[in-house]
Design a protein around this nucleic acid. Sequence first.
DNA 1: ACCTGAACACCGTTCAAGT
DNA 2: ACCTGAACACCGTTCAAGT
Lengths: 227, 227
Amino acid sequence: MTRKVPTPRRRESSLSREQIVEASIALLDASGESGLTFRALAEHLATGAGAIYWHVASKSDLLTAACDAIVARSLHATARKSAAPKPAIRALALALFDAIDTHPWVGSALTRAPGSLPMVRILERIGQQVVALGVPGAAQWTTTNALLSYILGVSGQNAANAHLAREQGFERDSFLGEVSAEWAQLDGAEFPFTRSVAAHMLAHDDRADFLAGVDLILAGIPAARRR
Amino acid sequence: MTRKVPTPRRRESSLSREQIVEASIALLDASGESGLTFRALAEHLATGAGAIYWHVASKSDLLTAACDAIVARSLHATARKSAAPKPAIRALALALFDAIDTHPWVGSALTRAPGSLPMVRILERIGQQVVALGVPGAAQWTTTNALLSYILGVSGQNAANAHLAREQGFERDSFLGEVSAEWAQLDGAEFPFTRSVAAHMLAHDDRADFLAGVDLILAGIPAARRR
DNA sequence: ACCTGAACACCGTTCAAGT
DNA sequence: ACCTGAACACCGTTCAAGT
């Protein structure tokens, strides 16, 4: 993070970390995690594969940086609304859900980078609202963690669905149709619940269900305190 | 899934899908997701890489099968205790947490296989208890989904911590120490919450916090119904 | 029916050599 | 200080050929 004063003497159009991250995001959005390749990146940036390593430590460094750019952007867009804590948490949750829906690779990449900067950004924002909610000190960590896990968990699953559907050339709807049909054919004695929700899962609205789950957790917070 | 009657005529010690899955689990446990390689697997099984493709469709098929073996085993171990719904959900959650802690690769692999058999097994078990809890029809899917996402989300994060720590050659504790120290040095104006929980995160018990979160959601269920 | 192993088309990463 | 591009040590997957 210590940035030395640069003395740009050579050509002005030299490679920069931001350029590389931006190009990475474009590749990731276009063709998923497998689309991010040092060779593809080099071609995209009209340079050699080795050049990228001057600005970036490794592929996982690059992926984390790309994640952080998306997360920071998304959090920035929902910042400073100064709403009450619970509406603020709902807005935050939806912003992340939408960001991960738009950039499905963010979901799985975040999971593999615990304690990294993008995760800390989210933790911080949720935590501040949990504190504002009046949750006592000892429960703040647990409550924030529960919300964080739910938000990233469901958003990630939703994105994985979308990604898998696209990968198999289906529309998202017809992919859900496939899964629903599979579930409906499961053994009734062994999988009664899954069979019973097969129809609902076909018709459901991912975003609305996601928000309902957030509300479920939010509802549990005062209830848990009252015990 | 249609299994033709096999006519084993050649040598009795032929390769089987179960053998391959078992060897895969061993490799995954020993050296993580990057340790599962068709070449390593072939060497382990004293065969050629191509032979494995006779029994397995692809690497992702193999990974899903390995996941399913672990999940099925773990669910079977906690089956038929016929406890009340909430204790049953807690026991189920802990069993999965422990299984993913022991086999960290299960956490990330599950995320990438939505709608697959191992996921359905878990969905089914949680769903049955949610139904037993008396949650009305319309809310069953959402409630089950929330629990599923929380359980897999937190377990996955915990496993990712363990895996990352091991990868970097740290003990788990000293890895958490690193992260905690980093958090304590964050900018106080921008990251007040993260700074304030840095100490707690060092001392906390992952398993206990995980269970507390499950209780938080369980507490929210009746509260949400009462609205 | 099942296995072998070479071959194909890729990867991330390194590094001498250039400017 | 920054870039080039060949080279290294790998991958998953395929497929003719064997038994």
